[in-house]
């Protein structure tokens, strides 16, 4: 999947939780889920679960721990998809 496509999918996932519409409209790789999009930390787990469901992957705790930005999320999704494809 292309990076741009991944960002589009992520944007759809984070939209219901993002509290900063301006930051959401300008989402890019460096966007921080909490600092920029103002996602409540109690809802970050929903983003993780939605990503798991959307991409059919399992995000382990170490990966979840670093999933604070769009860039980190993309890297994790790509890693998990690649690992799944290699099975």
């Amino acid at each position: 999947m292309e990076k741009e496509e991944l960002i589009n999918e992520l944007t759809i996932i984070v939209s219901p939780y993002a509290q900063d519409a301006e930051a959401l409209a300008h989402i890019q790789e460096d966007t921080d889920f909490i600092r920029d999009l103002k996602i409540n930390s109690a809802n970050l787990v929903d983003v993780v679960l939605d990503v798991e469901e959307k991409f059919g992957i399992e995000i382990d705790n170490d990966s979840m721990a670093r999933m604070l930005t769009v860039k980190a999320a993309i890297r994790i999704i790509e890693e998990k998809l690649a690992a799944g494809a290699g099975k």
């Binding site: 930390s41 970050l44 705790n61 721990a65 604070l68």
Partner: peptide, 8 residues
């Protein structure tokens, strides 16, 4: 350190 690891 910033992270998201409520389980730990």
């Amino acid at each position: 350190v910033r992270n998201y690891s409520p389980l730990s």
